[in-house]
């Protein structure tokens, strides 16, 4: 069931193909987890793609781990709602941004390349405060 997708990304032509690129993939799931991208909600499985705008959710006694294109790594504990608002990773063009929101639940975050190349490009919003990340690992918990 392994599929190889080889996509040639020519300079500045990426968007011209009209194919939206996944920005990350699911690496681990236990229990119930879903990914909502646009109108489509899928059951999260190892290998499931994540897109800009995707909403990641876990249920009771569940957890999920994901890895992003820029090598940012995250995991989520039970009853979590996390969304990727904006994800830009084009180092050659200098487009670097990662804004996300943890509505509730828990997150373990490990920095990737985006913030190495551009400090202050990574933020995680919560309802009570905004977190700026500069090259590190942290734990974040948001209680409803």
């Amino acid at each position: 069931m392994l599929r190889i997708i080889v996509i040639m990304l020519l300079f500045l032509v990426g968007h011209a193909f009209g194919i939206e690129q996944p920005i990350g993939h699911v690496k681990s799931v236990s229990g119930e987890a879903t990914i909502t991208s646009g109108e489509k909600k899928i059951k999260a499985e190892v290998g499931s793609p994540i897109y800009q705008g995707s909403i990641l959710q876990t249920g009771k006694n569940s957890a999920m781990g994901v890895t992003f294109k820029d090598e940012t790594v995250m995991s989520f504990g039970a009853d979590t709602v996390f969304s990727v608002d904006e994800y830009l990773y084009s180092p050659a063009q200098g487009n670097l941004k990662f804004s996300s929101k943890l509505a509730k639940g828990s997150l373990n975050y490990v920095s990737g390349v985006i913030e190495k190349l551009k400090p202050d490009a990574v933020t995680v919003r919560t309802k009570s405060g905004i977190i700026g990340v500069r090259g590190t690992q942290f734990l974040l918990r948001v209680e409803e």
Binding site: S128, G129, I131, G132, V133, R134, T136, Q137, F138
Partner: peptide
């Protein structure tokens, strides 16, 4: 206290920075 951040060292051992801006 139920909504909080804890800074951990990166897997390579280095410690970066997190800035929390709240009300």
């Amino acid at each position: 206290t139920k909504s909080y951040v804890v800074l951990l060292p990166s897997p390579d051992g280095s410690v970066g920075e997190v800035v929390i801006k709240g009300e």
